[in-house]
Amino acid sequence: MLINADTGRCIGAGMCALTAPEVFDQSEDDGTVVVLDAEPGPERAAAVRRAVQVCPSGALSLAGAPATG
């Protein structure tokens, strides 16, 4: 699992940092996503998928994973 984060699209809602805090944080400056672990292990996969799904701006995607609506 490889995480792509588009800080240009990110609106700093913090849903990823709330859902998977071991993997995502937010910048102190503008609140946009900071990826702490771009290749999280399988034990974090469920939380990461949930974070990608609830992201309001579509700033997160998973490489190799099928696109979801």
Partner: peptide, 15 residues
């Protein structure tokens, strides 16, 4: 909108 939002989001982070 982005101009305003970016100025404020840092103040409302989870941390």
């Amino acid at each position: 909108h982005t101009r305003f939002r970016r100025l404020l989001t840092g103040q409302f982070t989870v941390r």
